[in-house]
């Protein structure tokens, strides 16, 4: 049997222009039968709080002047919400979403504060071990 192909993503950013590629690339990995582990840290984790996950409309400061236009085009063209794309990919494929324990401690977030799509809260040591030998991305 061929060795399992794996992708590990560290999601540091919590702006929607970074979260779209997270969900779309995770879908591409599912298409390729890869196991995906997503590690949410700092602003990436803040974006997965229950109250933020659907309402967040932040765009990276580097592209702030295009933010309104981007969100407008996406709404007009009915682009699926990045969260729905990630939910769909997780239903079909082998995706595991982990919250960074350090960030959770810092901002006093418990599992209950996070959207149920998040599977667990783990330390960096465990994630780096998962990332060993996998395709790694930093988003």
């Amino acid at each position: 049997m061929a060795e399992e192909q794996r992708m590990c993503m560290t999601v540091f950013n919590g702006t929607v222009d970074k979260l779209y590629p997270v969900s779309i690339i995770a879908s591409g990995a599912v298409m390729n039968d890869m196991r995906v582990d997503i590690f949410l840290t700092f602003w990436g984790l803040m974006a997965f709080r229950k109250e933020a996950i659907r309402t967040n409309t932040d765009v990276s400061a580097d592209y702030a002047d295009m933010a309104g236009e981007m969100l407008d085009v996406m709404q007009k063209k009915n682009v699926a919400h990045w969260y729905d794309t990630l939910v769909q990919a997780k239903e079909i494929g082998d995706i595991h979403i982990h919250a960074c324990a350090m960030t959770a401690d810092l901002f006093e977030l418990s599992k209950e504060d996070l959207d149920p799509i998040v599977d667990d809260i783990i330390g960096v040591g465990e994630f780096v071990d998962m990332a060993n030998g996998a395709t790694t991305l930093y988003m």
């Binding site: 779309i24 591409g28 009915n78 699926a80 239903e91």
Partner: peptide, 14 residues
């Protein structure tokens, strides 16, 4: 139709 990449493919896989 009207769904963007990777929507149609994910629908098919499902």
């Amino acid at each position: 139709r009207g769904s963007f990449c990777p929507g149609p493919m994910m629908e098919l896989i499902r």
